[in-house]
Design a protein around this nucleic acid. Structure first.
Ligand code: ZN
Ligand code: ZN
Ligand code: ZN
Ligand code: ZN
Lengths: 287, 287
DNA sequence: CCCGGTCATAGGTCAC
DNA sequence: GTGACCTATGACCGG
């Protein structure tokens, strides 16, 4: 029993080759899950009942039921990454996450590192963007409500909302970063920043919006935190409402809240996401 | 000699297409071996002597002797796998959306269509979810502000926000669709619906929120539409504010607006997105 | 260790 | 029943 639990594929019972997408399973089921998620899982049960046997010999009989077993075993759809291009001769893509990671570690490490051998406009711009990101995350950690949370909860939230914090804060940067975004080749990011700038939020409003981004109760690690986060969120709503009603019209209150929608990155393949999604965890460790 | 060994079928001498069941052989002998093993190999020698010639021209004369040659060449019976289920989609272009497209067209066509030959739990649930989606899109097109836009602008917007409309409306569906979402295997979608239900928006609020989803000025086709959409959006904000302030507290106004954030699908590979993103355009054509 | 991609070789299909 | 032709699978390897 314990053998099958620890050495067996949780989907089909074949020999496991380690954890894949959060579940101990075999190469076949791992690969099948990846392909299914990428291609859209457009299966129908062969038998029509959704209860086909899924074992080593019969796992290929019904892809639908096999995929159901994958999900039942707890395999995580979000752990399947975007399809990468065909494996080409390396060195052609400097925006590779490993390259970024090395640059970042060199930058955030406390030990003095030798000057990076790689040079070029993109590397420089990446470093500047990374510095802005680090600054944004530091500011988030200083947020009046957010700072009260324990670190594990903070990190869990920031790993989701880091890009929203980035865009919100970066839209206030005095430095015009359009040029370096152009170099990174991301029209969407540029557009997001322009939209955020149109909100013309002042510093007070900015802080309230940041709290609303950081204190989303859906990202709570447990029920207690859900209550705490909702209280923080409601508090920020109250403060923002008072502030905007006092200075202008409550229509502005609504417009600012609607503006939060636009901070979400719609696609994972925009340059910002590609550059940083794999290194945010590393940055958080250094803060 | 070496030619026949490396490029020739070890059974009949025809051109080999690679190794099959452990032996370099042609497609014909490979397929013949598979069928023979699956069906039990109950042949008898035509000539009765078991020494018929097996070459490219005469390999179909005596199945018994052909199978003997397969075994003599070393083909491995245990390498023949369990039969797999029939492939649900064939045709020349098995793009995953073709199946959905056919189902949809059958469903939305005004002409009475014969009962679809394909059956299965997922197919049924797909049809129900598709019906809900079609209904949501129809309702969107009846929206008091949105209906005033020209069709091209409507379609451009709906191609982006269809999933938000779906989740908002579906969260109000009396039918419990959790079960069929389970079958489609999407925990995220289920969670999004649960979150939307927690908003407990009434029908009036729902309509205002829908307008805010449908009239996003970022999706304007040109500058004129941007002005129009913003005006609609501001109008909906005013109406919603008045309505909520009258019935409860303006905190509720803020909470409803924050709730709009959650309707965005965070990933493109959730089941809802996978199922429908390629067919939304087709649905829109039929409305 | 666990992502990714690769490709030899399983599978099924359908005109013949 | 056959086999030319296609897709799907999973053992294997790089990062
Ligand atoms: Zn398995
Ligand atoms: Zn099945
Ligand atoms: Zn042959
Ligand atoms: Zn014979």
């Amino acid at each position: 029993m314990s053998m099958s639990l620890y050495n067996g594929c949780q989907v089909c019972g074949d020999q496991s080759s380690g954890k894949h997408y959060g579940v101990s399973c075999c190469d076949g089921c791992s690969c099948f899950f990846k392909r299914s998620v990428r291609k859209g899982n457009n299966y129908a049960c062969i038998a029509g009942k959704g209860n086909c046997v899924v074992d080593k010999a019969r796992r290929n009989w019904c892809p639908f039921c096999r995929f159901q077993r994958c999900l039942a075993a707890g395999m995580n759809i979000t752990a399947v990454q975007e399809e990468r291009g065909p494996r080409t001769q390396h060195q052609s893509q400097p925006s590779n996450s490993n390259h970024c990671r090395r640059l970042l570690l060199a930058r955030t490490s406390s030990t003095p590192s030798p000057t990076p051998p790689v040079a070029g406009g993109q590397t420089l711009h990446f470093q500047i963007l990374a510095q802005i990101l680090v600054t944004c995350l530091r500011q988030a950690k200083l947020n009046e409500q957010f700072r009260l949370l324990e670190r594990a909860q903070q990190d869990a939230i920031l790993q989701v909302v880091w890009s929203e914090c980035f865009i919100l804060r970066a839209s206030h940067w005095s430095l015009d970063i359009s040029a370096m975004i152009d170099t990174c080749g991301d029209a969407q990011l540029k557009w997001l920043l322009a939209e955020a700038q149109q909100l013309r939020a002042d510093l007070m409003e900015l802080n309230f919006l940041e709290t609303l981004i950081l204190c989303r109760k859906e990202l709570a690690l447990n029920a207690d935190y859900a209550v705490i986060l909702e209280a923080h969120s409601n508090g920020a709503l109250c403060s923002l409402a008072r502030y905007t009603l006092h200075r202008s019209h409550w229509l502005r209150f609504g417009q600012l809240l609607l503006g939060l929608r636009q901070l979400c990155l719609r696609r994972y393949d925009c340059a910002l996401s590609c550059m940083f999604r794999n290194v945010v965890r590393d940055i958080l460790k250094t803060l």
